[in-house]
């Protein structure tokens, strides 16, 4: 019955095929040409390695105190000096990278997964579902994030931890075992996915009206396959661009929380927390604030360059 398929020629086996260049491959070529973005990627890559292998790279443990050598200037024994408890600043910056980078990676990843799946469902099904889902997003947008995070922290952290029970105890212990990062993730996770959900919905609305989607429907291809195999790859570009531009914001958000004392638990080092500690002695010991700030600035700058590079590579129309 199926004449097209039954009599497929058998004799065409040894043909050499021309290689096609996919849009992603072309984007990669463009990204490779951007020296700043490539250098930044190398920098961030090294930073990630350093953070992972901090136990081997750092000269000492981040909490190793030495009261005889507090407030030392940068020198031979302590490359970047020591803080008010005599802890090696370089080691603390290296360990601090863990916090900043995990916030950047986990924050981006969760907000990407949640935001994209939410937005794509909302955009694809449209109508009443879309309306309801987007109103929920609007409501969450109106919640002041910082206030919410502060409330969470006050609720879960205030009081004697030994007396906590049930859910509160579970959350407290989980947070403590992560060095205080859990609530930062919750705070970021609560809001960071909202803009991504909106962008995804918009892109989905645009792409689902394209003729190649209509063509897929007219070929009898099912909804789920169209959603994941046809629509998703075509909206990925703008989403990656947005997510990568958001990374620096997340690093700064964590630093801000740590700076006002709502971040990770001491003695776990975080760049924001170190800046907060250093600010007390800013006149006499400027190196205490200089080096963590420098580390953060470089990281944020590098992620910005990567974001710009990705934008130029994935959407050449936007360049300049």
């Amino acid at each position: 019955m199926n004449s097209t398929i039954d009599n497929i020629d058998k004799g065409q086996e040894n043909v050499t095929f021309e290689k096609g260049e996919s849009l992603s491959l072309l984007a990669w070529y463009r990204f490779k040409k951007n020296k700043l973005a490539v250098a930044s990627s190398v920098f961030i890559g090294l930073l990630i390695l350093v953070a992972i292998f901090a136990d081997w790279v750092a000269p000492s443990h981040y909490a190793a105190e030495d009261f005889m050598s507090s407030y030392l200037k940068p020198g031979k024994d302590f490359l970047l000096g020591t803080d008010f408890l005599g802890r090696d600043l370089l080691s603390r910056i290296i360990y601090g990278a863990r916090v900043s980078l995990s916030v950047a990676v986990i924050g981006t990843l969760t907000s990407f997964i949640v935001g994209v799946s939410y937005g794509i469902v909302s955009g694809y099904f449209g109508g009443k579902i879309d309306n309801l889902m987007m109103r929920i997003v609007d409501i969450l947008y109106a919640v002041p994030t910082i206030l919410f995070v502060i409330l969470i922290m006050v609720y879960f952290r205030a009081g004697k931890s030994e007396e906590f029970t049930g859910f509160k105890a579970l959350m407290y212990n989980l947070d403590a075992s992560m060095g205080g990062m859990l609530f930062i993730f919750i705070g970021i996770g609560l809001t960071a996915w909202l803009p991504l959900a909106r962008i995804t919905r918009g892109e989905t609305l645009a792409v689902k009206e394209r003729e190649y989607i209509e063509a897929a429907v007219s070929q009898g291809i099912g909804r789920r396959r169209i959603l994941f195999k046809r629509i998703l790859p075509n909206i990925m570009g703008p989403l990656i661009i947005y997510a990568s531009v958001e990374i620096p914001t997340m690093i700064l958000y964590e630093a801000f929380l740590s700076f006002i004392g709502l971040g990770v638990n001491p003695p776990t080092p975080s760049w924001g927390g170190m800046i907060a500690e250093g600010i007390q002695g800013i006149r006499s010991y400027p190196h205490l604030i200089l080096f963590p700030s420098l580390a953060m600035t470089l990281t944020v700058l590098a992620s910005n360059f990567i974001g710009d590079g990705l934008r130029d590579a994935l959407d050449p129309k936007l360049k300049d």
Partner: peptide, 20 residues
């Protein structure tokens, strides 16, 4: 199943092919 027997060719060949 029915859609297999009725196909469509669109006007704009630049829009009707999935670029990915």
């Amino acid at each position: 199943q029915k859609r297999m027997h009725m196909q469509m060719i669109f006007q704009d060949p630049y829009m009707s092919l999935n670029p990915r």
